[in-house]
């Protein structure tokens, strides 16, 4: 058990942090929603009603889509784009998909390589892009969920203000949808750009996100 916790500490801690933050968001969001209900002469909702509402769903989904977009783009972009000196980048002369030998594919696969990396054909082709594809799929699903739940929350607000509800396409072209979307995207791009650049010159001893403390600034793809 102890060994399991040690070996999976990173995923367990972040999973728990995510759940804790979601619970906190639910309480804070319910209080905020009920404040707005007072202004709009609506009824107060329970925590359970709020968690099942489109208001909660859109607030969750708009953040999830941007996180998955961040990793989706980063996984694909780092195949072709490099940053000299950043541990977030591969070596500058490794731009592209790299050789089968580098990627342990085909006759270079080892006995411990995953089966889909050994078999060749479409399975290896799919497996070779599976991380980016899954991140991309999660991004599009989260963004779709944002558009559906966002339209529902937006239309409730429209009716409370004695205005007509909008269609899904109308909502996807609305200022509300793009304001929610872009304010999340810009923060993700800023965060990724910051870690790429700052990790060239700054160090965090013991972190794989950093180069070793004594590594030169122009050393790329080292971690410590």
């Amino acid at each position: 058990m102890r060994r399991f916790l040690r070996d999976n500490g990173l995923s367990l801690v972040f999973g728990l942090l995510c759940l804790g933050a979601l619970v906190g968001q639910a309480f804070a969001g319910q209080a905020d929603f009920n404040n707005r209900q007072l202004a709009d002469a609506g009824r107060q909702v329970t925590l359970l009603e709020y968690v099942a509402s489109s208001d909660f769903a859109v607030d969750v989904a708009e953040n999830w889509q941007s996180e998955y977009l961040q990793f989706f783009l980063y996984v694909f972009a780092t195949v072709w784009l490099v940053q000299r000196g950043s541990p977030e980048s591969k070596l500058v002369d490794k731009v592209g998909h790299e050789s089968d030998e580098d990627q342990k594919l085909g006759r270079y696969a080892t006995e411990r390589s995953p089966k889909w990396a050994r078999v060749g054909g479409w399975r290896t082709a799919v497996f070779s892009k599976s991380l980016g594809l899954v991140m991309g799929a999660l991004f599009f699903l989260s963004w779709l969920a944002q558009s559906i739940s966002g339209r529902s929350a937006y239309n409730a607000g429209q009716l409370a203000q004695f205005q007509d509800p909008v269609s899904w396409l109308g909502y996807v072209g609305s200022a509300d949808f793009w304001n929610r979307t872009l304010q999340n995207w810009q923060s993700e791009f800023l965060a990724m750009g910051s870690i790429v650049v700052l990790s060239v010159y700054l160090r965090q001893r013991g972190s794989p996100e950093s180069k070793p403390v004594g590594a030169p600034h122009d050393a790329t793809q080292e971690s410590g």
């Binding site: 859109v58 969750v60 969920a145 559906i148």
Partner: peptide, 13 residues
């Protein structure tokens, strides 16, 4: 995660 996002969307819509 995928299931939860979908459920959120479906519940809202």
């Amino acid at each position: 995660a995928c299931g939860l996002v979908l459920l959120c969307g479906v519940a809202a819509g």
